[in-house]
Design a protein around this nucleic acid. Sequence first.
RNA 1: GCGCCUGUAGCUCAGUUGGAUAGAGUACUGCCCUCCGAAGGCAGGGGUCGCACGUUCGAAUCGUGUCAGGCGCGCCA
Length: 577
Amino acid sequence: MSFDPKSHLSELLRAALASVAPGQKVADIVIERPRDPSHGDFASNLALQLARELKANPRQIADRLVHELPVSGWVDKAEVAGAGFINFRLAAAAKTQVVKEVLARGPDYGKHVGGKRPKVQVEFVSANPTGPLHVGHGRGAAYGASLACLLTYAGNDVTREFYVNDAGRQMDILAASTWLRYLELHGEKVPFPPNAYQGDYVKDMAEQIRQAHGERYVHPAAAVLACVPPPEPDAEAHLDGLIAAGKDLLGEEWHYIHQHALSEQLADSREDLEEYGVHFDCWFSERSLFDTGMVAKAVAELEKRGHIYLQDGAKWFRSGDFGDEKDRVVQRENGLYTYFASDIAYHWNKFERGFDKVIDVWGADHHGYIPRVKGALTALGLPVERLDVSLVQFVSLFRNGAKAAMSTRAGEYVTLRELRDDVGNDACRFFYMLRKQDQALDFDLDLAKSQSNDNPVYYVQYAHARVCSVLQQWGGEVRSLNAADLAPLASERELALCGRLREFPDMIESAARDYAPHAIAFYLRELAAEFHAWYNAERLLVEDDAQKKARLALAVAVRRVIANGLHILGVSAPEHM
RNA sequence: GCGCCUGUAGCUCAGUUGGAUAGAGUACUGCCCUCCGAAGGCAGGGGUCGCACGUUCGAAUCGUGUCAGGCGCGCCA
């Protein structure tokens, strides 16, 4: 029933090769789809590849291969062209066969079948819970979620994970910012530092705390500032002084402010992502790595293996021995572990969970971080080749033709929520996928807002809706089309469309291999274009019943593949526009 | 200075792990609704794939050099 042209043709070539050059081995016979339709449906460069080893003219080898090619009912013609390509033309039945396959497999068409399912973890977004997600996170979220779904389609057992940075200085700064805003509400005048979190959401949290607990956390401004170094010349020391003052004055109650801010922001991010269609299987707490002693254990293990030394009171990991440009501190002079230390523990933990592949999706500005993490894993004797880091380049916002400033601390940025409200989830997710992840993306807000109808997502969705509309007009039982005779499908456009549908599983496989879900968006646009062209050229609901059913079956198959592709991208496939 | 990424049509970008005459969207020009949805289709012009060597049957793709742009080089995360 199922017919795979590529494997069939490579079998034929292998048989031919056995008689042309007995004993000659070829690891992989490449069958590809020529760009130019005049070069047939499939082509092989086998003769070109063999030319060197056989010390013969590629065209002569190709001639002999074609001559020895076994007869096949699926193949209409095989001919030599160009420098020695062998071009195949398939019988129409071989091309239209795919329609039946698509209709039979439905939502599973394109999914990898059989074999073991490697356990893969994709960690993405992992934004500090110190404020709303912005459009950069939106890109990482869209990419990570699509990649995870793509990998699932390609036959992997995928776990989606969000690493929660709930330990460390940034969280303390958020807690201090909230507390300072809270003091403001109570008339205590402590100047709000410019390097604290400026956003209105901080004021909102302060107000919530005031309403719930009144004056419980109030201390006089003079007491707060008593031991705090001035903002000049060291603004960071000033901020750290405010944090220390808070911890000192509030004692155990500091933890409440800290926890409130954390859970509020985390809940906000989670809700934002859920609405965006981005789900996680696991939210992994950085703090848990400290609580369970994993961080200390990781550093101790590196120490045991002789990769740690003391200098200036700090513990350094010899990452320079493992390809990094210099050694890195894992434990500071003041006894606190660095972010790097918990990240080593985190990755160790990932490996202990038995993933065959661990994929980190990071912002491109973290690329310098890769050698030290891989170095640490190597030093721990872990199979570092199982870790892949996929870097997502920054998003630059353009408003009124000018680049918009983005600073989390300053609170000057467009949030993911605002973007979603403006252009909609579908357009948002699809727009991000029109750019390869490792390329910087210029996001023109005005264009996205004012001309959202021009967004390519509508072009693809429209093709889906059109099929729905035609089927409604027809009024028949869609499932009956699974048994339709496809022989009437004979026009060039129809057979080309079948070829495009056939390509879908290959596209999934190569996109998954390259961690490149953007390829799906580009494929869908091409498929939609070929469908629209066909739709405009030929009427589907014709008098001839056999003709009509064959065309409807093809249309339903197109609709199915569009729906499957959009599903991977997290974009809806509407029946009406 | 060192490391990573990127230079392809006026603009925004693809390019299937080295293949045949390098593609799409957009913009521009001219057509197509008494007809299943015109958010659509058809046709046209537009290129030294930054530049120079090298590898080979064959290079946008691989290597070296060079020019230009972005990012990263903390006891921050």
